[in-house]
């Protein structure tokens, strides 16, 4: 199966840095920000965006969490799927600006589930979406606010995001 690397380690680092700058820009600063990573790779991305925000803005107060969406999926055909912990920062999400973070945006169904999960936990002032790769083929009216890389793909291809802590190295490859 031919593999094509579309983002290497430095591309990913640059994308994370750029997303961080864009988050600060649209939010006019880091006030009230809550970053929630969607397992599994969204969690590591959220951690890295959090680190990067702290480097850029000395006044940044970290509110980092994890949002598990297993119980909210509409395609939970695999009941063996492991339920992971949801960790919401102690200050909560009410009236905050929540940035949902995932690795790949595809059909939009994961994000739909995440929005449902979020609404059961509280009422954010705003919800934004950051993804490392947007590969198109949306099935729902959902669009990202921050994108690392737009990657036009065919539905037959597979996009694999690998991240240093989860997979040992940083890269995004397309399997054809």
């Amino acid at each position: 199966m031919p593999l094509r690397t579309v983002l290497d380690s430095s591309d990913i680092s640059r994308a994370i840095k750029r997303i961080s700058h864009e988050i600060l820009e649209t939010n006019s600063g880091s006030e009230d920000l809550v970053l929630l990573g969607i397992p599994t790779r969204g969690v590591e991305l959220a951690e890295r965006i959090d680190t990067s925000l702290a480097e850029i803005d000395p006044g940044y107060v970290s509110n980092l969490g994890v949002l598990d969406i297993t119980m909210y999926r509409d395609d939970s055909l695999d009941a063996e799927r492991e339920i992971r912990p949801t960790q919401i920062p102690t200050s909560g999400i009410d009236d905050k600006v929540v940035v949902l973070i995932d690795d790949v945006l595809y059909s939009g169904r994961t994000v739909r589930s995440a929005l449902d999960a979020l609404i059961d936990i509280g009422r954010p002032r705003q919800v934004k979406l950051a993804v490392l790769v947007d590969r198109g083929h949306r099935e729902l009216p959902i669009r990202p606010d921050f994108v690392g890389k737009n990657l036009p793909t065919s539905a037959a291809e597979r996009v694999n995001v690998m991240l240093a802590n989860t997979d040992g190295s940083d890269q995004v490859v397309i399997e054809q």
Partner: peptide, 23 residues
């Protein structure tokens, strides 16, 4: 063990304000 792990995570719902999951 998988059932116990899932039960541990699902237990957290009981301390939330909205104690319901759509699964």
């Amino acid at each position: 063990i998988a059932i116990l792990d899932n039960a541990d995570e699902l237990g957290a719902v009981n301390s939330r304000e909205v104690k319901k999951l759509p699964a």
